[in-house]
Design a protein around this nucleic acid. Structure first.
Lengths: 194, 194
DNA sequence: ATAGGCATGTAAGCAGTTACATGATTTA
DNA sequence: TAAATCATGTAACTGCTTACATGCCTAT
């Protein structure tokens, strides 16, 4: 059960409601954890029941009231214990990569379109992450910021997000280009052998 | 249900048994799909029941007999339909990135160790993937291979695997280095503000 | 008026994980 | 003789996804 820890981590930088967390987790916590809104409401209830977070009712004018949550000391202890325990390996699951792997037995046209779409999405996400980095950094350059700031976790996580999106963009463009070239040129039957 | 398509894809390049697929899926199909052995046996049974693959008993001397599977025409149609349908977004889930995000509220020591471990694993995987690429390529250079070969899917997928592992290695090393430097230097309270 | 955002959930079903079970053969 | 590899599963549990449900407020 590690959604628990992802939620606690998201709550480190402020009070959020289920709805606000849903937006954060829709993008993924810097792209490293996705969760659906329904999961979050359930997890928040469990975390509160276990005393790892506390909720506070916020009365709003003009829009529905909400409950926002804060991490307790017990919650911090839980996070610290989590951090000390070995990490599970990176978990990646990608439909599109499976399609690429199968490409020679498939109609490549829709896959090429999906690769180009994915590249475009990655470009947008990359720009967003780079903006987030610049905002966190303020006037300092990266090295200074990383040495001097008290809170570097989100910055370091966004650096990972940038790397991922940059490579995704590059890979999708490269593959789409290759496949387009192949679709144009006729194939040689009886291909190279080792 | 997309494990189905990952299994069909894995079976495109040859007959495999559940046990052999388990090894392929343990690493991940070029790192883009993981599955546990028990899942595979279940999925193979369903795929055969639905006529998308056919099994063939192989009698072996000195070791247990096995059943190996081949994709049928119906299986290829299923894959083609899958490829034409929009892809789900990339799904990434990473414990370690969550720990990095929370790092400022945590004891950094075990996290740094995990980052260094992860970097080492990535280096090994990268070498393995680059070897796989070289083997597929044979004597041709990449451009020639991609233009001339009949089967480029696995090559293109491995290219993605290399990109991922290379970035993972770089990110983990960079972050571990930053965090070590911070652990040494005393922090300035009341950090930079936007 | 209608669509979209804010806000919070329930319920059913499916997929994935963990634990357990069996048994032969090869290698250290 | 113990551990690792080959080979195939079952069972119980947990977690995730999909669909549904409600209702108010704001902007077009």
């Amino acid at each position: 059960m590690a959604l628990r820890h992802a939620v606690l981590t998201a709550l480190l930088d402020g009070e959020y409601s289920g709805y606000q967390l849903a937006k954060i987790f829709d993008v993924g916590v810097s792209n490293f954890w996705y969760a659906a809104p329904q999961q979050l409401y359930g997890e928040l209830a469990r975390l509160e029941r276990d005393g790892l977070i506390v909720g506070r009712r916020v009365v709003q004018a003009g829009r529905p009231n909400k409950r926002v949550f804060t991490v307790t000391d017990a919650g911090l202890d839980e996070l610290d214990a989590f951090a000390a325990t070995p990490s599970k390996p990176l978990f990646v699951r990608d439909d599109l990569a499976v399609k690429v792997q199968a490409i020679d037995h498939l109609d490549p046209t829709p896959v090429i379109a999906q690769l180009e779409e994915r590249a475009a999405v990655a470009t947008v996400k990359l720009a967003r992450f780079e903006k987030a980095l610049a905002d966190l950094r303020g006037e300092l350059d990266e090295e200074e910021f990383l040495q001097r700031s008290e809170r570097v976790g989100p910055y370091l996580a966004y650096l990972g997000g940038c790397r991922l999106e940059r490579e995704m963009q590059g890979w999708c463009s490269q593959i789409a280009h290759s496949l387009r070239a192949r679709a144009a040129e006729p194939r040689v039957k009886g291909a190279p052998r080792s």
